[in-house]
């Protein structure tokens, strides 16, 4: 069987691995790198549990091949907190009970974090529309949307303070 060698940066660390051409990025992350925080909830690119950042954009890691991520800068849920301090989105999910079973959570958090970079002050409607690609069966989305609203506020305040 042919294998490809891929090298990429994951959570700030250079990594490389030999993978089959058909290997998905999520498989590389979970199986080769043992970063099991990124989850697989479906086989049709619908659920968003596998969402990570690739070169700064949220991407469903079940939807790209590991080979396509060659040379990319990938961030997973394990790399979001900095120096033990939760990212504002993580903190808001904790504060506002934006998670129950936790399975959709890494994808929700990564997707929301990307939203708030692109749109620091989203409306409720914009949050709900953005998260349309992430399915949660537990929370009814109520507290997820609340958490994103609060995280947005926190991030805006932090940005203002830094100015």
């Amino acid at each position: 069987m042919t294998t490809l060698s891929v090298s990429l940066t994951v959570n700030g660390k250079k990594v490389s691995a030999d993978v089959e051409p058909r290997t998905l990025l999520v498989q590389l992350l979970r199986e080769n790198l043992h970063l099991t925080g990124t989850h697989v909830g479906c086989d049709t690119s619908q659920c968003g549990a596998c969402t990570v950042h690739v070169n700064g954009d949220s991407v469903k890691s079940c939807t790209i091949l590991a080979a396509q991520a060659d040379g990319a800068d990938v961030r997973t849920i394990e790399g979001l907190a900095q120096a033990g301090v939760l990212h504002a989105v993580q903190e808001a999910f904790r504060e506002h009970h934006g998670l129950q079973c936790g399975f959709c959570t890494p994808g929700m958090v990564m997707s929301s974090a990307d939203l708030l970079v692109k749109n620091p002050n989203p409306s409720e409607h914009e949050i709900r529309t953005w998260l349309e690609g992430n399915i949660c069966r537990c929370t009814g989305y109520h507290n997820i949307v609340k958490a994103v609203q609060h995280a947005a506020q926190t991030l805006r305040q932090t940005a203002q303070a830094a100015e």
């Binding site: 990124t38 997973t76 993580q90 958090v109």
Partner: peptide, 21 residues
């Protein structure tokens, strides 16, 4: 009272331990 959940930190940082993990 609404005590914040003690289980959240592991889930929020990708440290949950599900069967497939």
């Amino acid at each position: 009272t609404s005590v914040k959940r003690r289980e959240d930190k592991r889930f929020l940082t990708g440290k949950g331990n599900y069967t497939d993990d």
